[in-house]
Design a protein around this nucleic acid. Structure first.
Length: 415
DNA sequence: TCTGGGGTCCTAGGACCC
DNA sequence: TCTGGGGTCCTAGGACCC
């Protein structure tokens, strides 16, 4: 029995979903005019996260700075995204796809694979996909592309062909005619760097990549990646549609400043914020982290990062924050302006930390209580995108385990 | 023109253990 | 006292995805 995989991809998802909402409110449809969705439109460092088709026709690309997009189209409509609405649209979209096949893998907020092997035949696959596509459009008001293939790779490549509101096939026997002429960059997993390396070697199309010897390819990109690229360029992929939702392996948060900063107080404020957010998330998901990492990014986009292993896994904001604080001087000279600062946790476990009550720092009581209060407030203010957090966090001045926020200043913990 | 925020996986080298 | 080799853990860095 042949495998039949569909890849369903929402066209310009964030613009489409916002468009549906605005039309419902009786407002003009932003999908029909040059428009983009970005983060904070007033922030000159925002980037375009989605562009309408008329905007794409003017050369606006995702992701590019909003300022650059505005230069290409001075009358561009710039909208801020609405994550609550996006989640709703995504759920509805996935729900309809799942009704066509329960063997579904959500690939991102606006993409999924379904295994249709038991649900259709190669002969009627296009008809079934067209029905699914129209079902979504007529029920939810936005369009999707459906790619059909004998594996996930081919289905995904196919959904990327002409847009919007289209169904395309990419069966194995269509690979030479439909996939091999494409530029090598169009192949999944071939990004900017890999493209540069391949082109420097004279490989411009997926077909040329499919034909290259393994020895050369291994020298260019390494053994493991070479095997994958070679298989994929030949249209081969045996990865299954994964229905299990994998547990997160890491959590991170970062903040980019409006202007590059040098004041250590500003850097610490940002670290404090991202630590609150990351620690809150792992508590919400009942994790503890063994590894804390932090990084700073400079104006030339170079990144300096550092990670450290905690004595025992923790979900306490103070522990995580102070681990990051300790690493900052090791990667930052204190004078170079910083563009962005970030904090991450990894090596996650659900195990409770071993309670060494006799040895545990008595201040931990306080820090856990502080976290508990933070989590409660976050739940209460969930509707608000931002919550002003003014709680003073210094129980013991000058303790080794410092968890203090400069008096009188506010910490803003963004959603 | 000037680049967000959140993830995953892979590689390489050093430390340490058996 | 000196030696080899494999396995595992950790850190740093780089590439990709949406």
């Amino acid at each position: 029995m042949p495998r039949i995989i569909f890849h369903i991809d929402v066209n310009s998802a964030f613009v489409s979903w916002l468009g549906v909402k605005l039309v419902k409110e009786g407002k003009p449809d932003i999908r029909l005019v040059p428009s983009v969705v970005s983060g904070d439109p007033s922030d000159r460092r925002s980037i375009v996260t989605a562009a309408s088709i008329p905007a794409k026709k003017l050369g606006i690309r995702v992701p590019e700075p909003v300022s650059m997009a505005l230069r290409k189209c001075p009358g561009l409509i710039i909208m801020r995204g609405d994550w609550e609405w996006y989640k709703q649209c995504s759920e509805d979209f996935i729900g309809i796809c799942r009704s066509y096949s329960p063997i579904l893998q959500q690939f991102s907020i606006d993409e999924c694979f379904i295994d249709m092997s038991l649900r259709c035949t190669p002969e009627n696959a296009v008809a079934v996909a067209t029905k699914l596509k129209d079902h979504i459009r007529n029920t939810l008001g936005f369009t999707v592309n459906v790619g059909i293939g004998s594996n996930k790779l081919l289905a995904k490549m196919a959904s990327d062909f002409e847009k919007p509101d289209k169904v395309h096939t990419l069966w194995a026997d269509e690979v030479p005619s439909k996939m091999w002429p494409l530029p090598v960059r169009d192949l999944l997993w071939v990004g900017k760097k890999t493209e540069e390396r391949l082109v420097a070697y004279g490989i411009r199309t997926i077909g040329q990549l499919a034909a290259i010897g393994m020895g050369s390819l291994t020298r260019l990109v390494g053994q493991k990646f070479a095997v994958q690229l070679h298989e994929n360029a030949n249209g081969r992929d045996d990865s299954p549609v994964e229905t299990e939702i994998a547990e997160a392996k890491s959590y991170s948060a970062e903040r980019t400043f409006q202007t590059d900063l040098v004041n250590p107080k500003d850097i610490d404020r940002a670290l404090f914020n991202v630590a609150c957010i990351v620690a809150h998330r792992i508590r919400r998901d009942d994790f503890r982290a063994s590894c804390v990492s932090m990084f700073v990014k400079y104006k030339d986009f170079t990144v300096a990062q550092k990670q450290t292993t905690l004595e025992q896994p923790s979900d306490v904001t103070a522990i995580i924050l102070n681990a990051a604080r300790k690493m900052l001087p090791e990667i930052w000279d204190g004078v170079t302006p910083i563009r962005q600062v970030g904090l991450g946790v990894s090596r996650l476990t659900h195990e409770s930390a071993v309670q060494m009550s006799l040895f545990e720092d008595p201040r931990m009581e306080y820090y856990r209580e502080w976290d508990r209060q933070f989590d409660e407030d976050r739940a209460r203010y969930e509707d608000a995108r931002m919550l002003a957090y003014e709680r003073k966090a210094a129980p013991h001045k000058d303790d080794a385990l410092v968890f203090r926020y400069p008096d009188g200043e506010q910490a803003l913990a963004a959603a």
